[in-house]
């Protein structure tokens, strides 16, 4: 297992995207900071200048190629026979992407501190009381942790799709559609009031977790779930999609 993880880190570390992603993210965060301006200083700080969205896009690009590069380079056979069990191949890829996800979120928090302190100065301090009667720094950390859970769900969906579809372009497009249209798909699903109590647990709804944390009043009307319920749903769907993804991977012929 450790051998498989080391291999995955080695490959990720040598990809250009690994090093470019934090730079691209910084540029986009600065752009967001200027675009939104100082009116929403609290929200931009909590949401790390929208870094959460940029991280999602980066993860989709890297995650979608994670399996397809193995198929395209015929490396999947070598990976599979070198690993003592098939699950190690799947799990190591997932863990490495998760670690990279955590790394990007930490970088985003770091950038936020620097940008707020030097580029987008405001009167709002990190210790000032903000959402949920908590200091701003607590809000930022909680929002980051919740976004980490949502991005894990997205990684799980990308892996599931990668096991069903060999083309990284299709996986990438489908994942982007899920992320971009998830909210409206979820709203459409819940259009029948009688079934809302059940349909509010649809997986697309869970993608609203971090957005709802930063804007509860608006998003709760759409999701019909509390933050805690959304988090529970997200974690359950991570487990379910992970198991289904691995089952498909195990059954796949190489």
């Amino acid at each position: 297992m450790i051998y498989s993880i080391k291999q995955e880190f080695f490959k990720l570390y040598h990809k250009k995207m690994f090093w470019l992603a934090p730079i691209i993210m910084l540029v986009l965060m600065i752009f967001t900071g200027y675009a939104i301006g100082s009116d929403e200083a609290r929200l931009t700080a909590v949401m790390c200048y929208d870094a959460t969205d940029w991280i999602t896009f980066i993860l989709i690009v890297i995650g979608a190629t994670s399996f397809s590069m193995e198929y395209q380079n015929n490396a999947i056979l070598t990976l599979l026979y070198k690993a003592s069990n098939k699950i190690y191949v799947y799990l190591s890829k997932y863990l490495v992407l998760l670690v990279y996800d955590i790394f990007l979120h930490l970088v985003a928090v770091g950038y936020t501190i620097v940008l707020k302190g030097f580029l987008f100065k405001s009167n709002i301090s990190w210790t000032s009381i903000n959402y949920y009667h908590q200091p701003l720094w607590v809000n930022t950390l909680q929002a980051t942790l919740l976004d980490l859970a949502v991005s894990m769900l997205i990684i799980t969906i990308i892996f599931l799709l990668s096991c069903l579809i060999n083309s990284n372009a299709v996986v990438m497009t489908t994942s982007l559609l899920v992320v971009l249209l998830g909210e409206s798909i979820s709203s459409d699903i819940m259009s029948k009031p009688k079934l809302v109590s059940v349909l509010k647990w649809n997986p697309f709804n869970m993608l609203n977790l971090s957005r709802q944390y930063g804007n509860y009043a608006t998003y709760h009307l759409t999701t019909h779930l509390s933050n805690v319920e959304l988090l529970m749903g997200t974690l359950i769907y991570i487990a379910v999609f992970f198991v289904i993804g691995y089952w498909i991977f195990r059954k796949k012929r190489f």
Binding site: K11, M69, I76, L77
Partner: peptide, 12 residues
């Protein structure tokens, strides 16, 4: 083993 085609990552 070398099965079918060499398992090589082009970016390495």
């Amino acid at each position: 083993a070398l099965i079918e085609h060499p398992a090589i990552y082009p970016f390495l």
